[in-house]
Design a protein around this nucleic acid. Structure first.
Lengths: 338, 338
DNA sequence: CTGTTAGCGCATTCAG
DNA sequence: CTGAATGCGCTAACAG
């Protein structure tokens, strides 16, 4: 408890140099002659010196931390991004400060405040609902990058997957398998300013239909909330519409899971009676019965890229939007028709 | 960029008091007369003053942060705990610093180092593989609590669910449904010092059998690695043993999911041919086809309790082990026999 | 109760 | 290239 922490001064003494020299070799700044440098390094090793981060921060103004505001732990895709961020930061001198906004604007704002109080050097928003104008404003003060959310008014510092294209291709895959009546389970997000991922998927779905000479049937488009349960409900809604459909495209795997159960409840076999596809490629998707055809977004890679981006930003480089390619994962939940 | 941050001195001036008085009312320490206190508070509000955390930390020695070392983002149970921790910390003055050990001792150790470098006031291990001796040692220096891992040699600062009891009851449920040959998919953890959750489940399973006058059949106990894939492999292993079994108890839902797929591949129906139960109650469990009977651990509550525990510890209170009750979630994956 | 003062440990001018 | 000196913003004795 009482054991005095060794400071820069201790090693300065042991190495027979001044504390500023020590500081210099530690911060790798201006040149120091080899012998002195080595003496310092030696002393550092001998005494197992660990710099006091607070003193460093206080003196330098840098906190060496990056604030990460996510929306829900537990969501596979977001968690993948978080893991990627952590990995991307691992070999830097930065640590991550986390907060969970829980899709609640107020919480998100408070989290942002504690982060600015802690003088984070960089900020990462994983999804989120804060308006673009507001984000642009914070971005002005703190290096900020937004991941997993496509900002329309800002075309930099934003990392996301091409949801439109992926949804287009996924729908096309269904069409090429002979499906003509393809239902879609979408979801409405709270923030209106941004074109959400889910919305892009809806657009991709529609466009694919149009390009194939099929006209989207509004009654085959139902709305969930991205949760599993809503997927099951969506089946009921679809059934009430009394429209025929041979395939369902759920905007995310969670709802696809729910839809699968809903179909089962109603006695529909997958894929014999109805084909089903999702989006995200959660692990559960690969282990559904039958395994689900879906789209994989490179979450980890996106997370890493995000970390790299903030780091770059902090170092004064400018970073442009980065769009990641998603990948169609074909499994057994789709049947050919005719 | 250049705008000078307002400091304690600014508000001291504006309130016509000394900086120490300001510090006093802010830190709510010793008494200050009402008028002065209010003047200070007013000034703080007027100038929208935000204390510099680094200066505070440097001067006080407290960082107002708590280090959380988890093992894998993305695991539903752990994520629930994390969410709980965050919630539990929300109304305190502490922030959480996160690191992902990824079940890798080296990474875990490094994370611990950066945390001590950052002088975290408290430490939370969510699972983890560091030896109990080592943990005890850190606990000596920093208030530490371990959650979701049952330490045998330390009976304080440890929060976990009663896995033995839950597994016992789950197995018993199977027995009462008429099952006599119950297979179990377990897993071996890397750290040997601790009795792992999974091991406790295995013990509960065996004890239930014994207490029912059935003797555990070693050939019906196969080993996975907690991942989905290993559940599917486990089915193959079980089939190779050529033992009859009417039910399978997977030590976690992930493996149950895999087992479900494995069964499907081999043409077994659930629960008609084989009953299946898991452990954890991931969301996916409720949406399996058919929905999975499993055990729910109160992850969020455990997380909150963990946060409370560290906070207590920091405030000098002693905290004893807290054991949470799990809950049997009966769904349709189990059939009555005979 | 309140103001003064001395650090906390380090980065960073500024001379030399 | 290097050392001495200054201050980052705040807390905690220390006197009044």
């Amino acid at each position: 408890m009482a054991e005095r922490r060794i400071t820069i001064e201790d090693i300065a003494q042991k190495a027979n140099v001044s504390i500023s020299t020590v500081s210099r070799v530690l911060r790798k700044s201006s040149g120091v002659t080899a012998p002195k440098r080595e003496a310092v390094l030696q002393a550092v090793a001998d005494l197992d010196y660990r710099p006091n981060v607070f003193a460093q921060s206080l003196a330098s103004g840098q906190s060496m931390t990056i604030g990460v505001i996510t929306q829900n732990f537990g969501s596979p895709f977001y968690d993948g991004i978080l893991a990627g961020i952590l990995q991307g930061l691992e070999n830097s001198d930065y640590s991550a400060l986390f907060a969970d906004g829980r899709w609640d604007r107020a919480i998100e704002r408070r989290a942002l405040e504690t982060f600015t109080d802690r003088r984070v050097d960089g900020l990462i928003f994983v999804g989120g609902q804060l308006s673009e104008a507001f984000l642009a404003e914070v971005g002005q003060k703190i290096p900020t990058v937004v991941v997993a959310r496509e900002l329309v008014s800002i075309n930099s510092n934003c990392i996301f997957a091409d949801n439109f294209k992926a949804a287009y291709e996924l729908t096309n895959y269904l069409i090429e398998a002979g499906h003509r009546n393809i239902a879609h389970i979408t979801a409405k997000m709270h923030y209106q300013e941004a074109v959400t991922d889910v919305e892009q998927r809806l657009r991709g779905y529609k466009q694919a239909l149009v390009d194939a000479g099929l006209s989207p049937n509004p009654r085959l488009i139902v709305e969930g909330n991205l949760q599993e349960q809503s997927g099951a409900l969506a089946i009921e809604m679809l059934l009430m519409e009394k429209q025929t459909f041979s395939a369902i495209f759920a905007a995310n795997d969670a709802m696809a899971l729910g839809a699968r159960l809903g179909l089962y409840r109603r006695g529909f076999r997958v894929p014999d009676d109805v084909s089903l596809v999702g989006f995200d490629d959660e692990v559960a998707a690969a282990f559904m019965v039958p395994p689900l055809t879906t789209v994989r977004q490179p979450a980890i890679a996106m997370g890493k890229a995000t970390a790299t981006a903030v780091l770059d930003l902090i170092n004064g480089k400018t970073v442009t939007n980065k769009i990641f390619e998603s990948q169609l994962i074909v499994r057994e939940s789709v049947a050919r028709i005719r």
